[in-house]
Amino acid sequence: MTLGPYASFIVWSYAVCALVVAILIVWVALDYRKQQAKLRALDAAGVSRRSKRNAAEVS
């Protein structure tokens, strides 16, 4: 496969796409971890959702 005289434009197009998609994937994954960590910290501090509390009180 030869990309001809404009190879750099083609390579840059695919490279920018790969970079932005990678950033999106990492951002979504890190955000998920962050929210889960916050929920765990709140749970450890005894702050839980009403539905969870009611279930605990019933049992």
């Binding site: 999106l24 929210q35 702050v47």
Partner: peptide
């Protein structure tokens, strides 16, 4: 990505509600 980001947003709103509580 959209489903994953929606999941994150739901969790973010839960965190906010619990922090207010």
């Amino acid at each position: 990505l959209h489903l994953a980001a929606m999941r994150n947003e739901i969790l973010r709103r839960r965190v906010r509600a619990l922090q207010m509580l």
